[in-house]
Design a protein around this nucleic acid. Structure first.
Lengths: 265, 265
DNA sequence: ACCTGAACACCGTTCAAGT
DNA sequence: ACCTGAACACCGTTCAAGT
């Protein structure tokens, strides 16, 4: 609630002239403090010790202002570039740093992620992401699609984490299945192919982990449904390489189980 | 723009009494037509031929109304239950049906996905999802976490698809990497572990695909960075099983490359 | 060029009053 | 119990006028 100095006539006087960057910065501060829905042109002007209408000389309208704030933060998503590290490690670091910055502006993220341009090709994040995929050996022509998928997946997990859904969902006790009826599908477009690829990827990732040692069914509760554990995938398939610490791997999802992580005991 | 009958004094008269469900349904119709930001208690009342204040006898406020709309749609996410199909196929169908319904209310989804309770444990979607994971052999104790991850990942991809980011990103030409400096990380919590698991999973999925036939580097552009293609993963690893059509697989991401899909020629 | 005050067309919601 | 009109405290934004 700091106030700038006042002129003799009682109106407030700024010590810094209004700029778009300054306006966006103050807007971000308001959003961080009270959420997007609390951002108001009038409140923003008050914080800047300006007349509400003065803002419109630097920003066309509130929507553009919000986009500016989202872009300002999007540009700041970056990470160190470790050209000599394995691509898996670089990817992990990139995503982790993304998450760290997202945590600094949790109130903005739901808005940012629903904006089509919160990450742009010039952004350090995109540059590093594509470099990592290149280092991973992804063909040049496929890099943008793969990078898009990584952005979408990571954003989705971030949203769910920040709004608490991830925490709430993961603390549910499993329910018994029940029969339901409905459903319809089938078409095919570029987005369809992308969507199938995500599914194929996370499924094949899960298959790999499951194939490690769950052939007979888990903890005394063998699944009786037709389970086809992809005979082509060998048993000794392991999680990606860059994980260095020696962790007990008797369960393919062990690093997620409560109290199983050895570092927490 | 249909209008109900009018009373002699010129005020409109509803033929159906106001109910919360009816209010939510009309609200959803307005959102589908013009977006969330166009939904207004006053406009909604006009559509229902009611006084704006009448709505407050059935809904405490606009926020609760929005939650009601999101829940109404969330409850409708469901799919057929194919207990005899392989779990991969069931997962694919579940996600595809999710997507189909999401496409029916694109204007609501960004809001829904940012709501912590748009999917609840009683919902058919959650029930089927957990059943599929059970059929996959996931240990009972890990099912909620895995289901949460699937929800988050699928939601993230849906948001990116619906707002056009997926399309825009995937049509970018790759940029050349540049050196940047920054970055900071490191902590550890339940959410941290979840986050690492997503990464491990999509990475191991991608590793599996990459290991198929990209040992020497892609299309004439061998990556000179230290690439460690996880020697433990054998070459002949294939995408998950439930894919039935015979597709050319000379490229692990071939079903995503422009014009490569054989069905499109 | 930048700023400003008054005003306009909206909002969500409270409240007292009607039936 | 349900509905209503008037009113309140806000919005974003236009516009004509100031410097």
């Amino acid at each position: 609630m700091e106030r700038a100095k006042r002129t003799p006539r009682g109106t407030r006087k700024r010590d810094v002239p209004l700029t778009e960057a300054g306006i966006c910065t103050s807007a971000l501060r308001l959003i961080d403090a009270d959420g997007v829905e609390a951002l108001t042109m009038r409140k923003l002007a008050a914080v800047l010790d300006a007349n509400p209408m003065s803002l419109y000389h630097h920003v066309p309208n509130k929507e553009a202002l919000m986009r500016g704030v989202a872009r300002m933060v999007g540009t700041r998503f970056r990470t160190v570039t470790l050209e000599d590290a394995p691509w898996q490690e670089r990817m992990r670091l990139l995503a982790t740093d993304f998450r760290t910055l997202a945590h600094r502006h949790p109130n903005l993220m739901a808005y940012s992620f629903s904006q089509p341009d919160f990450i742009q090709p010039e952004d350090p994040f995109w540059v590093e992401l594509t470099a990592v995929l290149d280092a991973a050996g992804v063909p040049q022509s496929e890099i943008p699609q793969l990078a898009a998928l990584v952005c979408a997946v990571v954003s989705g997990v971030m949203i769910a984490e920040l709004n608490g859904a991830l925490h709430r969902w993961s603390n549910l006790q499993p329910t018994t299945p029940a029969s339901v009826k409905d459903g319809q599908t089938n078409e095919d477009s570029g987005e369809d192919r992308m969507f199938r690829l995500v599914l194929d990827t996370i499924i094949s990732g899960m298959e790999g982990r499951l194939a490690v040692d769950h052939a007979g069914g888990p903890d005394g509760q063998p699944s009786q449904n037709s389970r086809r554990p992809s005979a082509r995938i060998p048993r000794q398939l392991r999680p990606p390489a860059a994980r260095c610490e020696g962790e007990s791997q008797e369960n393919p999802f062990s690093d997620m189980a409560a109290g199983v992580d050895p570092k927490e005991q």
